[in-house]
Amino acid sequence: MNIFRLAGDMTHLLSIIVLLLKIYATKSCSGISLKTQELYALVFLARYLDLFTDFISVYNTIMKVVFIASSLAIVWCMRLHPLVKRSYDKELDTFRHYFLIGGTFVLALVLNEKFTLQEILWAFSIYLEAVAILPQLVLLQRSGNVDNLTGQYVFFLGAYRAFYILNWIYRYLTEPRFTRWIACVSGIVQTGIYADFFYYYFISWKNNSKLKLPA
């Protein structure tokens, strides 16, 4: 464990806490893409299959349980909670995310570390996570004004993978055999997708103005 990875995991956890806070405090999920939340639940379920087979550390196990439980709870909340589901922007959240699932799964069948079910699902979860934010970014562009908590949620979600890139550089420099090309390349693509959001987020922070993504 190095400081970059810990910072990454804490930032990721923070993004989930901010999202839970927004939904719980405002009893609303307006501005949040259910499709992105479903994709993230799929990412965690596909990646953490080894939860019960390989014990790595208490920290690792706890974080996996937290990520799976929170992502499923958010999907449940947005689909079934009587009060929250009414505020879901169904007509704006129209990204065809099934293409993302199909495309990344095919890619995982072709590009993986080993042609075993667990490795294919792991690669699938890595590729899917890289594009999972797209429905959310499209929704933000469509809904125009972005409330603070939603903006912070997306910001922390993008920042965590940037910390992981620093972690991979650090591990590459300090560990003789460290090579994780699938995660590294996918992580760079993932962080790149946030680039324009980060730009507008920084502008809105500098001008102390409302975050507005161009349509």
């Binding site: 990875r5 995991d9 990721h12 080894d50 390989d54 790595i56 550390s57 690792n60 974080m63 996996k64 990520f67 570390e113 080993k114 490795e119 792991w122 992981y164 972690n167 055999r177 460290f178 090579t179 994780r180 995660a183």
Partner: peptide, 10 residues
């Protein structure tokens, strides 16, 4: 295989 022991990341 070496990839297994690197699955220590979340």
């Amino acid at each position: 295989n070496d990839s297994a022991d690197f699955k220590d990341e979340l």
